[in-house]
């Protein structure tokens, strides 16, 4: 009789173990294992010192970037989606006075592959494209060796960061910014940091 009872209790053991497991899985769901997003959000913009796209002798750094809320936009002329978002970004600059700084990411520059970017050619391409589609940028930082992009944890282009006046990253968006994205995701944060 008692043997039967204990085997009955044993039958509940898998259920109990599974219940405990579920608790951990639920907790695990809400703590990002990569901590990638949280590592960026509410952290200061990484330090950098990089030349202007048009003028190599002009150096931009974190101090020249901050002071006013800014959207840091990683892009390149090679990137189709970037082309698509340029007109809307330009509209943001012209109509709402949003300060947008470009981080120019050149995909062809791959020293390990024996390929080096031709900065003069990039400048021509950039001028052509911005001339056609609109220029949303106050200035462009040339991140040829991708040090800034790497520190920002870029995984593709376009990606944008909302940085507040004190230099803290408040929002990270992967993909293009369009009217819907701006309205639903970015505008609330932008309005908050602009006040």
């Amino acid at each position: 009789m008692s043997a039967n009872k204990s085997s009955k209790r044993l039958a509940f053991l898998p259920l109990a173990i599974f219940a405990v497991l579920c608790v951990f899985l639920l907790k695990g769901l809400f703590s990002n294992p990569n901590e990638r997003e949280s590592a960026l959000i509410n952290k200061p913009v990484p330090e950098f010192s990089l030349p202007d796209l048009y003028n190599e002798s002009q150096i931009h750094n974190k101090q020249t970037l901050i002071g006013k809320p800014v959207i840091l936009n990683v892009w390149g002329t090679w990137c189709t989606t970037c082309k698509y978002e340029l007109p809307y970004l330009t509209k943001l600059r012209n109509e709402y006075g949003v300060k947008i700084v470009g981080v120019y990411y050149d995909q062809n520059h791959a020293p390990a592959f024996g390929e080096f970017a031709d900065v003069k050619e990039i400048r021509v391409d950039v001028r052509n494209m911005l001339g056609q589609l609109g220029n949303p940028y106050e200035y462009n930082i040339l991140d040829l060796d991708r040090t800034l992009s790497l520190n920002l944890g870029i995984s593709g282009a376009p990606e944008s960061f909302v940085v507040d006046a004190s230099g803290v990253i408040r929002f990270h968006h992967m993909g293009d910014i369009n009217e819907r994205i701006w309205r639903d995701k970015i505008a609330p944060i932008w309005n908050e940091v602009s006040q």
Binding site: K8, A11, L15, F18, C22, L25, F30
Partner: peptide, 30 residues
């Protein structure tokens, strides 16, 4: 890609299917 809301949904499914079957097992296997 990670998306916790999906994860929660799958976890609920998991809890129902596995939890339900293990409960049935515990009650009936005797």
């Amino acid at each position: 890609a990670t998306d916790p809301s999906r994860g929660v949904f799958i976890l609920i499914l998991l809890a129902l299917v596995i939890g339900g079957s293990l409960t049935l097992y515990a009650l009936r296997s005797g």
